[in-house]
């Protein structure tokens, strides 16, 4: 099995990579630290799994050479699963890339990283609900502190391709039931 770590620049992909594989790729606090991919191995339930630290990219429409490397890596690995790493304090942009990857049919799990930074900014994310809407595992993490990494690994097997129509339907449904509940409460 092969797993790609993908996400925007400076969201912590390399930190995940090092925690997962015990490797030693450079981690820094600036976008563009990783400009080439690194491969590593880990064992999940007895199976050897290849993990790839992919350079950060904003979308699947590359605008520099590092992003080209990222998109090429994704397209070369048709049978891979993806861990989409999202900066929880900038969730919408992260979801944009995740949606693009979902639309291409890749099985995916989402790591909502830097939960601590989001909390500092008073941003609260209902991860369970996000998970129900998207139909894929969503795990809150603080990768530099190692929080949530185990849960992420244990839920990798639940990664599956999802139909975009289902997501659209789920998004519409929850907002219906929600507004219905609100209406009921008001009455």
């Amino acid at each position: 099995m092969k797993i790609l770590l993908m996400g925007h620049p400076n969201v912590g992909k390399s930190v995940f990579f090092n925690r997962l594989t015990g490797a030693n790729v450079t981690e820094s606090n600036y976008p563009g630290t990783t400009v080439d991919y690194t491969k590593g191995w880990m064992k999940i339930e007895g199976e050897d799994v290849e993990i790839v630290d992919v350079p950060g990219t904003f979308s699947l429409d590359p605008k520099d050479k590092a992003e080209e490397v990222a998109v090429a890596m994704l397209h070369e690995s048709r049978d891979a699963k993806v861990i989409a790493v999202i900066d929880a304090s900038k969730i919408e942009r992260g979801l944009y890339l995740a949606m693009e990857i979902i639309e291409e049919g890749y099985p995916i799990v989402i790591a909502l990283n830097m939960r601590d930074v989001a909390e500092d900014k008073n941003i609260v994310i209902d991860a369970d609900r996000l998970e129900r809407i998207l139909g894929i595992p969503v795990v809150s993490t603080v990768a530099i502190a190692g929080e949530g990494i185990k849960e992420l690994v244990s839920r990798l097997k639940e990664a599956k391709p999802v139909n975009v129509d289902d997501i659209i339907a789920n998004a519409a449904n929850t907002s219906d039931t929600e507004s219905a509940a609100d209406a009921g409460g008001a009455a």
Partner: peptide
């Protein structure tokens, strides 16, 4: 739509 549902 999704973020309206899940993020405050």
């Amino acid at each position: 739509k999704i973020s309206k549902e899940t993020v405050t």
